[in-house]
Simulated assay, not measured.
Amino acid sequence: MSKIMISPSRYVQGAGAIADIGKHVASLGAKALVLGGKRGIGAIENELSASFKEHDVEFVIEYFGGECSRPEIDRVVTVIKQNNVNVIVGVGGGKALDAAKAVAYSAKIPLAVVPTIAATDAPCSALSVIYTPDGIFESYLVLPKNPDLVLVDTAIIAKAPARLFVSGMGDALATWFEADACAKSFAANLPGGLSTSAALCLAKLCYDILIEYGFRAKLALEQGVATEAVEKVVEANTLLSGLGFESSGLAAAHAVHNGFTVLEETHHAYHGEKVSFGTLVQLILENRTTAELEEVLGFCKSVGLPITLKEIGVIEVTPDKIRQVAEATCAPGETIHNEPFSVSPDAVYAAIMAADALGRTYLNQN
């Protein structure tokens, strides 16, 4: 099997970067559909409008319906055809960006991505996570190419709620451990090859940046400012995690997240928050060292990431609920089967319960 690494065509990051969006998008198309939620589009609409006008890019705005579902994707593709659009600009958070990626693929037009929060590694990837209209995980849509442009204005990111930024750290936290598991099992990455050394190094760099700068970056975000620590963690959450996960692979942590979507009480928890707990479950499954567990537990506590079932919404823990999660986590085709050993629902059930007990004990002792 060949080694394959993929990435966006262009990545732009910095405070005030949105002022140049017209220049970058003009090279992709002359008429854009801007897709995003009202809050996301509202955060950039004035700057986007001025920059598009300066660079002769026409645009229409279409508000995202809330779930990256097949009906929503089909709806937006119809809007594109009705307006003769030749480039799409996805704005906002993970689900809106995933929808924009899927729409661009279906409509066969270029794609620019403008995250207004650093809550997931969705912006850079050639992957859309498809949910049902009710928000239950349905499937992964692996796309033939990454976005043509990813533009991240860190001044805008700094104005978003800190919880979203921390959620992005939770998503990024899994990157190295999942990449390491896939490398050990020679599992295929998302483009269908083996990981390159470069991708593994980026995944490890992602983890190292979180541990070194995550806490101080969170404190800065709570003040609404973009320090150099914020710049580093935004890059980890967005670029390094995105490149690391898709070019090295996913394993147990994200599968556990998908498993928890069967419990409605966890739907209020953000993607990265559930992935954070999923990372702890993966470390238990892999019987990682005490030092590794304590470093992850300490990091999560310092920035406010969940390490217990209660923190992701499971207040009443019953064997039936957790077995439902374990069964969904181990569904055929799930990424947990990229672990370098056979995984069963019984093993996942045990790891979830053990991870919760470990997290509760850690919180009580610290």
Rank of each mutant, 00 (worst) to 15 (best):
E246P: 01
L221P: 01
A226N: 10
S248V: 04
L240C: 03
E265F: 09
F245G: 00
S248H: 06
A236K: 01
L263T: 07
Q223T: 13
R216G: 05
H254D: 07
T238W: 12
H257I: 00
A252Q: 07
S247A: 06
F260E: 00
F260N: 00
L240M: 14
L219E: 14
S248D: 08
N258Y: 10
L243H: 06
G224L: 12
F260S: 01
G242L: 03
N258T: 03
E231S: 11
G224P: 12
E222H: 12
E265K: 06
E235I: 05
E228S: 15
N258F: 09
V233L: 10
A255K: 00
L240Q: 04
E235L: 08
E264A: 15
N258D: 14
T238G: 12
H254F: 07
E246R: 00
G249F: 02
E264V: 08
L221C: 13
A252P: 04
A251I: 03
T261E: 09
K218R: 15
K218D: 06
G224E: 13
A217T: 04
A220I: 05
Q223C: 13
N258M: 09
E235Y: 10
E222V: 05
V225Q: 12
L219P: 05
T261N: 10
A220M: 08
A253P: 03
V262M: 13
S241T: 02
E228L: 13
A253F: 03
V234Y: 05
K218N: 11
E231A: 11
A226S: 15
L243W: 11
V225P: 05
V230S: 06
K218F: 10
H254I: 03
E235R: 13
A251Q: 03
S241F: 02
R216M: 11
G259S: 09
E264Y: 11
E235N: 10
L240K: 01
A226Y: 09
L221W: 08
L219R: 14
L239I: 04
K232L: 14
A252K: 01
F245D: 01
E228A: 14
F260Y: 14
E264D: 14
S247L: 04
S241K: 01
V230A: 08
E265C: 12
G244C: 07
T227W: 11
A255T: 05
K232Q: 15
H254T: 04
A253C: 10
V256W: 01
E222W: 12
L243Q: 09
S247K: 01
L240H: 07
E222C: 12
N258H: 14
G259C: 07
L239P: 01
L250S: 13
A229T: 08
V230L: 09
A229G: 09
T227Q: 12
T261Y: 07
L250N: 04
L240D: 00
V256I: 15
G242T: 00
G224N: 13
L239K: 04
V233Q: 07
K218I: 08
A252T: 02
L221T: 03
